[in-house]
Design a protein around this nucleic acid. Sequence first.
DNA 1: CGTATCCTGACC
DNA 2: GGTCAGGATACG
Length: 260
Amino acid sequence: MPELPEVEFASRVLRKAVVGRTVRRVRALHRSQRRGLPPRHLARLRGATIIGVERRGKHQLLALSTGDTLVVHFRMTGDWLVDTTAASLEPYARVVIDLDDDTRVSLVDPRALSTVTLSPSGSSSLPPLGPDAADPDVDAGVFIGALSRRRVSIKVALLDQRVLAGVGNIYAAEALWVARIDPRAPANSITRARAVRLLAAIREVLDRAQRSSGRYRDTGEGRFQVYDREGEPCSRCGTAIARIPQAGRSTYFCPHCQRR
DNA sequence: CGTATCCTGACC
DNA sequence: GGTCAGGATACG
């Protein structure tokens, strides 16, 4: 699941490939992508020059010379593939953009849950997002305030993009482990001191992921401490990592050293 | 607040 | 051949 570091990595790859280029041809190859990108929007896209690529939370924003913005979200399994217009289409290519220098960028997404939408000039169609989790200047007071207004568990609150934009299931669990906080603790019960520690832990896990090229590691030292490690020993205390469902998704944590 | 929905590969 | 996963949204 691409979270902030993976989306940041992908948007850098994309930026290098597309900024300054003009869209020659664009196709939506899957029903679910055609819903978000109907023919009239594909037509608007054609001939536009891409002037910049920005990231906000897990969204990628492609600024176009027309004033429109192409908004991309990878959801579960999306990623960019950059090749040339001469290449054969990838099996899971959902949106394919051919550029004037024969570069082709394809949104590859086996599950087809990615969203690509054209936001007309002036009307930003982003959902409400909190401060970007990668921003080192996030105000601890704002973060504490957001938590204090939520009665859901701290883990569920961290997944709410209005609290911090860019945190997902993996890094929420990892950050709670680093901060030694029980994921079941009510968000509004988190003390100021622990919230400050949690914010630092979020930055730490995101920075570390970013430094490993925005790619997940599945072996060796860089492996996750709790995510997808049910039954394995906690590296701090040896207790078996537990898995519980929260808001319909899996939370992994150490039931011994993560406290309420 | 919980639950269904979108999708399809992976797994039983 | 059925179930599950999961980010975000919609709905009860």
